[in-house]
Amino acid sequence: MSARVNAITSTPALRARRRLGDRFGDVFLHGLTGAAAAAAGALLVAIAWKIFDIAHPAISKYGFAFVTRQGWDAIHSRFGALDLIWGTLLTSFLALLIATPVSIAIGLYLSELAPRGARTVIASLVELLAAIPSVVLGLWGILVLGPFVGQDLGPWLHRHLGFIPLFDGTPQNAGILVAVLVLTIMIVPITSSICRELFLGVPTELEEGALALGATRWEMVRGVILPYTRTGVGAAVILGFGRAVGEAIAVTQVIGAGYGIHWSLFATGDTLASKLAEQYQSATTKIQTASLVYLAAILLVISLLVNLLAQVIVRRFSHQRTGGS
């Protein structure tokens, strides 16, 4: 017995070696993880720095007024971002307005209602939707969705809801509405799979507690599942917003490169990202290039703010779940 104990009692030498090994492992692990974290931070700073650096001629020439000015006149070098900020926020916001209830519905269906055997199949199909390259989706937007909006959906909306400014004007095959729908298709797979995960994460005891009171499934969803996941869903929605704000290619393909600030969804428009994608290669003057990069800087700031907001919400998640107050 005592021999056995001795065998595992560490000698001073062993202890020293262990300590050395531990310390080396510790240092190594700290170094590695620290370096990775620092690299990520440094990269972010470096990219932001470079963007603002290239945009500098435009920033110093136009100042902050660039943000609040309309129009994009390359011949007279008069550039403003307001149209594009409007286009970006309008398309992203509307896409989100459609995508949020759709995603919640899909998430609920896949976590609570769908036949068990079919759940994973449908879930992976929905997620595969996110795998469609955005240029391909944009092409589909041009060939299928655009004509559908221009000839069927648009006229229908105009006829029945034309009194709403959003549906005023003449439907076309390219424009804000097509962009909104394409963006919706892009964010639904992401937000709906996050929603599904969130709903699946609701403890079974809570669901049983609700049902044991004689609640129906729907009452349980409304009373327990949605309140429990509220903040998470909020964060998912904001992440989807971030995705929509930054999408360039597909939007460029379907939005019709228009000008101005309109409420009408049938009008053509542009977003920060689509303007960049359209014009960067063909920019003819230094100041035009700098102005385009200024747009990139604005986009970067918006995206970072949106992501920060999502993080703040997620941080509050645990507090919210304790309910009450």
């Binding site: 809570l206 044991a212 004689g214 009373g223 327990v224 309910g323 009450g324």
Partner: peptide, 27 residues
Amino acid sequence: VEVRRRIGMVFQKPNPFPKSIYDNVAW
């Protein structure tokens, strides 16, 4: 659902809802 309205249940692990004390009972 009707059956469960008449026959309530308390579980092994306390499972209050993520709501206020009042709303747990009122829900």
